[in-house]
Amino acid sequence: MDEIIENLKKAVIEYDGEAAASWARKAVEEGIDPIEALDALTVAIKQVGDGYGRGDLWLPDLVGASSAMISATPIIEEKIKATGGKRHKLGTIVIGTVYGDIHNIGKNMVSTLALAGGFEVIDLGVDVAAEKFVDAVRKHEPQILALSSLLTTSAYVQKEIIETLKKANLREKVKIAVGGGAITPEFAKIIGADEYRPTAIAAVDLFKEFVGVK
C-alpha cells in the first residue's frame, strides 16, 4: 500500500503522466483510501511548487509535474465521488483566459501553483466566453474566480464577465482576482475586480488570503 502511495508521488516528481495514471488506477483497484491518494499527489506537487518557489526548479518542471498530476487526479476523484468522501482542500478556484485571448502560459502557472498550494482548480482553458465563466461559478461554487488576459482588447472582457456575474446574482459569491500583461492594479479597480497580482506566486498568496489561510 505504501509502495503505491510512494510511486504516485514519485510519478509526479518525475513528471511521468503515464506512471501517475497507472499508479492511480492501481490505488483504486487495491482499495486505497482515495483521499489519501489525492493527498499524496498534493504533497508531490507541493514539493515541486516549493522547489520552483526557491528557484531550484524551473517552469518546465512545474508544468511537467502539473501535467502528471492532472493525468492521475480524475481517476482518484471519481473514486472519491463514488464513495461519497470529501477531499482536503483550501478552496476551489475557477480560472481561465478570457474570450478573445489564447495566451495560456501565465494562466497555467497560476493554475499549477494553486494546485500545489492545496486548492482545487477548475481550469476552463483559453478564449473562454463570459457565460462559460458564469456557468462554472454556478456549477462549482468556487470561492475564487481568477481571470487572465494579455491583450488590451480582451482585458475589457473581464469587465463583461463581472457584469454578467452581477446580473446572475453571483458576484457576491466569489472573490475575483485578475492578472495578465494587459492588466494593471488601477484597471482591476475600474472593472470591479477584488484584486490584481502581477505574478503567479503572488496570485496564490492572494488566494490563500481570500480563504483566510496565512
Binding site: 528557484g55 524551473w58 517552469l59 502560459i105 501565465g106 500583461g181
Partner: peptide
C-alpha cells in the same frame, strides 16, 4: 526563448 522562471 521562454524565460523559464517568470513565464514571459
Amino acid at each position: 526563448a521562454q524565460d523559464m522562471r517568470g513565464g514571459v
